[in-house]
Amino acid sequence: MNQVLLHRYAVLWSFCTLFLVVAGGLVTSNDAGLSVPDWPLSYGKLMPPMEGNIFYEHGHRMVATTVGLLTIGMVVWLMCAERRRWLKNLGWISLLAVIAQGVLGGMTVIFLLPKPVSIGHACLAQLFFSTTVAIALFTSGGWQRGRQFVDDSGAPPLHWLALAAAACVFLQLALGAAARHQAIGILPHVIGALLATGMVLWVTVRVLMRHAGHDALRRSALAVLFITILQVFLGIAAYMSRVATAEAPQPMPVMVGFTVAHVAVGALTLASSVVLAIQIFRHVRRPLAELQTEGVAVPSA
């Protein structure tokens, strides 16, 4: 029962974190990052008037505070109820990440949006969300039921392919953040989209072709595939809406909507590719003969 509640809490935590990513995206898209010039207070208060863009910036801070408290709650819960040491450690890492994220957020305000800090803030948000999703997975009933091994042979190994796909997605998110904060142009992000989409297609098609009968692998692969395709279309829509409203005197809702959706689904793309990689590492075995050929030490049975 406790495990079920812990998992539900982790899912709630993940949803709140995704909402935080959306809130952060709204801040950037509405150009609200410096609408509250002070930090950690807002206009010297805990609760400033929520007018104009202050609504987005202070709202982001409020959601961030909530997620911070939820993270503390998660760590306490893991320390009290969880037996797996590595999962407790992951909880602590998530707490460190959310603290670092808060400090980076404060630095963006105090130092007037320095690009490396703003990009770091955006990237860490994505990693933190993936961590919350991973913890939700590790606390799930499906995870508790144990492994259902399947064999996968051939080069490149599926494990490395899954890791490479997740890494490409993260790199693509970093390029997107850099473009969004005007550190680079849009071209690297477009090229990155081709690379990341190609890697995702490679790993998901291979999983679906070879292991469609494995529930966890099939579901994870389909999720990554669907989310990535959605993300590509949102990226095109976000770019087109930005071009179409470039002459507008203020951020227009159509641009804000598509761009924030692109940011949020980007977070889901990374999280789902991380989950797929985790599932592949958990359930997929490589044949002993293949490992021995590569010189990997294989313990005797």
């Binding site: 890492i93 670092a100 990237c123």
Partner: peptide
């Protein structure tokens, strides 16, 4: 996480 936190220098 640590890399990203570290690379955002002020």
């Amino acid at each position: 996480a640590l890399f990203v936190a570290g690379c955002g220098g002020s």
